[in-house]
Structure formats: structure tokens, C-alpha cells
Amino acid sequence: MTSSSRDTVLEKLTEVFRDVFDDEAMLLTRDTTAEEIEEWDSLNQIKLIIGCEKAFSIRLKPREINALQNIGEMVDHLVAHISNA
């Protein structure tokens, strides 16, 4: 998987986050964690999972997503799912 496709996934993921948190200025980096986003609670986590599934046309396992440590890991996880699909 090339770094450019990782960038595309991060971009799309940022859009999902912007929708869920209604924050058009929101910027994600690979190091961003849940602690840094105030409203990131368990209910918004579900919205993020459903939002990703829709945006990337994939199915995710909530337990696997919950175990991820930061956005970088999430991007990698999504990239792996997309290439498997």
C-alpha cells in the first residue's frame, strides 16, 4: 500500500470526523488520539464506525476499532480492509 493511498484514506476519514463532530476546521494527523477530541465518546464512536463503513463501503468490527490507539492505526486498519475487499 502506497503512502498516497494512506493520504487519501486519511482525507476521507477526516471528512467522516467533520460530519460526526460538525467541525469543518477539524484536522487529523496520524498521531491524533481520542483524548484530544473532547466530544469523542462511546456514542460518537458508533457514529464514526457507521460513517467509515458508509464512506469506504466496508464492514468493520467495533471491537477491533475500539482497540486502536490513534488515527494512524485507524488509517492502517481501514487500508487493510479496503485492500481485502
Binding site: V16, D19, V20, F21, D22, K47, I50, G51, K54
Partner: peptide
């Protein structure tokens, strides 16, 4: 997701 976003705003 667009509707909920609007609702949030």
C-alpha cells in the same frame, strides 16, 4: 450523517 450534523449545529 448530514442530517445529524445539521441537527448538531
Amino acid at each position: 450523517e448530514k442530517i445529524t450534523r445539521l441537527a448538531k449545529r
